[in-house]
Every structure is written in C-alpha cells, then in structure tokens.
C-alpha cells in the first residue's frame, strides 16, 4: 500500500494533512493516535469511501481513485462501529457480504463455515445478530471482512468497548492473519495493542504522521525519559505549573485529574515531586512510574497525552 501526499479537509478542519505512508506486503502497521487524529478519515480515504482533496492511494498496485473496484477487491475493511444487519443471522450476514465481494456457490458456503468456526460463532449462526453480545458482534464484524481473503486488511479500532476475552481473541486473529501473509493496517488509540501487534507504528496527530517506526525506534525518541503519572483529583488542571520548573522534568501535561510528566531518572525525582505537591497544597492520591513507552513518545512529540480528549 502506498499513500502519497494525502489530504482531506472538512470546511475549516484539516482531517488528513499530507500523509505519506508505505506498507509492505505482509507487514502489520498500526496507526496510533488520539480521538480526532485523523485515523478513521485516513481509513475511509484508503477504502475509497471518501474522495481525497489531494494525494493518491494505491492498494496492491491499484490506484483507489482510478481503479476503485480493483482496489476495493484487494481490501478487507473492518469498520470501527459494528456494521452488520441485526435482523439477519450470522450466516446470512456473511453470505451477503461474501456476495458483495463476488463470492458464489460452494466457495462462499465453505468460506462462511470456516469463518464462523474461526470466530467461534458456528453454534449461534442461525441466531439473529441483534441478539448477540458486543464481543460476538465484533468478531462477526471482522469475519465479514475476511470472506474474500483480502490481500490487505484494515481494522479501525476493532477492540473498542468489548470484554478482555473478546479483545484477546481479536488480537490473536489479527496476528494469525498477518502470520499467513495478510498485510494489516490497524488503527487504535490503545498503545499496548499497537506495541504488541505491530511491525511498525505510525503515530498520528492532527491529520499528520508525526512519527513512524518500530516500537523500539519510537521509544528511543524519548531517550531515557521516564513517565511519571500523578493522580491528583479535580484540581489537576491548574497543577502543571507547580512542577514544570523542577530539575529533571522535561514536560508536564494535565488531563482527567492526572498529571503526566516526562522526566530523566523518574525514580530519583519522586521525593522532589511529593515535596513540591505538599509545599503547594496539592493532594497526590497515587503516583506511577513507567519506563519509556508509546504514550511517552506521544507526550514528548505533542505535549499532550495520547488519551487527552482536548487533542
């Protein structure tokens, strides 16, 4: 997959701002970014659901703008929201989506059966999808994109709002598919998922790829900086100024009742942090120290936390 200079604007908002990205055959690339970073818009542009203002997308050598049908035939798209017919059963849903990808007859029947087995829904295949749990719907939502054995699978936040067991199952499917040669583009705002699954990770913010590389390469960006999280409660919003001048603190960000700090030698800094909090009358409920991770990278690059909705 090749993306060159891709741009999309909604009135005053630039949703995708000149993205360049190449994904090799068999590679698993995660798009990591907060809500509103442009991940879903980028997925829609790749799938040809949206028309780009500028730039070009190629999927398996087919330009999405000029050969949309060929490009779509090579793609399997798992939308962020469940996109199934609740009044049809699982089997009927899969048969319908299979037909939309051009499958017929015995091949379609066999593939439908395989996928129902894969996602563990063979026993409930005659039940209407509207009666399924969230996790079952998520699994079926993925199966519907796999019927035609796509060369490239795109998953848009497929684990949002589901139980840990279903989440684990979905991550396992994705890894298995990738292991069999399927190219995967996976969007998430869970850094743990991106870290676990990906060959490479593209960090998106405000419609741009602000960092791209392997997990190791990305965490190296923040060097030896640890991430310290202080749970403060309601007064966190104004508390960041109290810590920004402490020696060793490189960055402070407040959100959701928490302070996120990037600091050299975080363990050594903790006593000074507590002392400053006591001095300023700030109650600290808990403190967490983490080694450099993708959250640190995002904080380092943007000054904001990955899950900061103000982004």
């Amino acid at each position: 997959m090749r993306i060159v200079g891709l741009r999309k604007r909604y009135r005053e908002v630039v949703a995708v701002d000149g993205i360049d990205l190449e994904v090799a055959v068999g590679e698993l690339v995660s798009l990591l970014g907060p809500n509103g970073a442009g991940k879903s818009t980028l997925m829609d542009l790749i799938a040809g659901v949206l028309r780009a203002d500028a730039g070009e997308v190629e999927v398996m050598g087919h330009a999405v703008a000029r050969q949309p049908m060929a490009a779509r035939a090579a793609l399997g798209v798992v939308p962020q929201d469940i996109a199934l017919y609740p009044d049809l059963n699982a089997r009927e849903n899969l048969l319908f989506w299979g037909r939309m990808y051009g499958l017929r007859g015995e091949r379609l029947e066999r593939r439908t059966g395989e996928l129902l087995d894969l996602v563990g829904l063979a026993g409930r295949q005659r039940d209407r999808v509207g009666t399924y749990s969230g996790g079952m719907k998520r699994r079926l939502n993925i199966a519907a994109a796999l019927l035609h054995r796509p060369a490239v699978l795109m998953l848009d936040e497929p684990t949002v709002g589901i139980d840990p067991q279903s989440r684990r199952a979905i991550l396992d499917y994705v890894q298995e598919l990738n292991a069999t040669g399927t190219t995967v583009l996976y969007t998430t705002h869970y850094m743990e998922e991106a870290a676990e699954l990906s060959d490479r990770i593209a960090i998106l913010d405000r419609g741009r790829v602000i960092a791209l590389g392997t997990h190791r390469e990305l965490t190296a960006i923040v060097g030896e900086h640890d991430r310290v999280t202080l749970e403060l409660g309601d007064d966190a919003a104004d508390a960041d100024a109290a810590f920004v001048d402490l020696p060793g603190v490189h960055h402070v960000s407040a959100h959701d009742g928490r302070l996120e700090l990037l600091a050299s030698h975080g363990a050594r800094l903790l006593p000074a942090l507590f002392a400053r909090a006591a001095e300023r009358g700030i109650a600290v409920r808990s403190a967490t120290l983490r080694q450099p991770d993708l959250e640190s990278v995002f904080l380092h690059l943007t000054g904001r936390a990955l899950r900061d909705d103000r982004a």
């Binding site: 779509r72 798209v77 939308p79 469940i82 996109a83 989506w97």
Partner: peptide, 14 residues
C-alpha cells in the same frame, strides 16, 4: 445509521 451503507461502499460493488 447501522453503518452497513458505508461498509457496502468499501466493497467492489458499483
């Protein structure tokens, strides 16, 4: 509203 219209647009169906 179900999202299936958008999903249909991602398939090779004119």
């Amino acid at each position: 509203e179900e999202g299936t219209l958008k999903r249909l647009a991602t398939t090779p169906t004119t």
